[in-house]
Amino acid sequence: MLLLSVQNLCKYYGSTPALVNINLDVHMGEHVVLIGSSGSGKSTLLRCINYLEEPDDGRIWLDGQYIGGHIDQANQWVKDQPSELAHKRRDIGMVFQGFHLFAHLKIIDNVAIGPRRVLKKSKATSRELARYLLDKVHLGKHADKYPWQLSGGEQQRVAIARALAMNPKLMLFDEPTSALDPRLTHEVFQVVQELANEGITMMIVTHEIKFAQKIADTIVFMEKGEIVEVETVQKIFSDPQDERTQKFLSYVL
C-alpha cells in the first residue's frame, strides 16, 4: 500500500537547483536508503518531505493527504496554516545528524514532551510511554540524566525514541551516524535495524553502504539534485544500470 508519494518536487537555493523534478513512491513497511555524494540533494529531499524546507514546486502526499497544503473544492492548491502543517508533521518522525536533543530536559522528558505537549496526554501516560520507548532503544537506565551526560550514540538513540513517541507513519533518518565513531554507529544502527524488523516505514540517508545493503529494500541513488536510479537492493549492487551509479558504487564497494 502506498504511503508516501513525492511528486515533481523541485527546490532551489537562489538560482542553484537543489532538487530537480523528484518523483518517488514509498510503500508501507518499505525501507528506503538514499545514497549519493555530498550535495546530491539527499538531505534536502528528506527535509522537504516534512517541510523543514519548503519545496519550490511539486507535492508531498502522505497516507491520504498532502503535506504543506491541500486542494480545495475549486481544485486550487491552498497552503496549510502553520498549525495545520504542525499537525501533519506529527506523522513524520525525523532523526537529525546533530541529534538536537532538548538540552534543558532530562532524557525521559525529551521523549515525553511530544505526547505531553503536542498530543496533550497526561504527565503519567506520557512518561510511561517514554519509559517504554527508552527501554526499546536500550536506554532505560539513563532516563533521569541530561543529554550532555550521554555519549553521541546514546543521544541519537534518545532522538529516535523522541520521534517514535509521536507514533509516526514514516521515519526519516538524516545521516544519523555521521557524527559518530564506528562503535557508536553500530549501537545506533542496531536500534534502527530492530525498528525495521518491526515493519516501520523508513527513509534513511547514509554513507554507510554496508548498513544500507543490510537494511534496505530499495536504494535510491541521487546526483546533482536528481534521482538517477531507484532499484531493489539486490539489483543495484550487483547490476547498476546507470553509468553514474556504477561510478559512485565503484568508490564505496
Partner: peptide
Amino acid sequence: NQGQWEAAGSIGMTQRM
C-alpha cells in the same frame, strides 16, 4: 541552535509551543 527549532517542529510543535 536552529536545530532545537527543527527538532521541535518535527514532533509537531507549533512555533509558539
